[in-house]
């Protein structure tokens, strides 16, 4: 349980980081106007955030192992 706590915490922070970057990009990026209007927060955008977080969890395990060998 204690082993997975830091990973879960890191995953939550990483998901938050993605949302913050998304909000920042939305602010700085000029709007694209087309006949269909804008698709805000499409399901795909959220699926990408979930998939990227899962990838981050795998990578953080690899990073942790590499770090333990380094120190």
């Amino acid at each position: 349980m204690m082993r997975f706590l830091p990973i879960a915490l890191a995953a939550i922070i990483f998901t938050g980081l993605q949302i913050v970057i998304g909000a920042w990009v939305k602010r700085i990026r000029p709007p694209v106007v087309d006949e269909r209007g804008e698709a805000e927060n499409t399901p795909d955008a959220w699926l990408w955030i979930i998939a990227t977080t899962l990838i981050f969890i795998l990578l953080s395990m690899m990073m942790a192992e590499a770090w333990s060998r380094w120190v």
Binding site: I21, G22, R29, E38, A39, E40, W48
Partner: peptide, 21 residues
């Protein structure tokens, strides 16, 4: 991704996050 999310917010967001990782 830029096809299903035309504005490109998710595209830019994911590009940045992967380059950061």
């Amino acid at each position: 991704l830029p096809v299903v999310e035309r504005r490109g917010v998710a595209t830019a967001q994911q590009s940045i996050i992967y380059a950061l990782l």
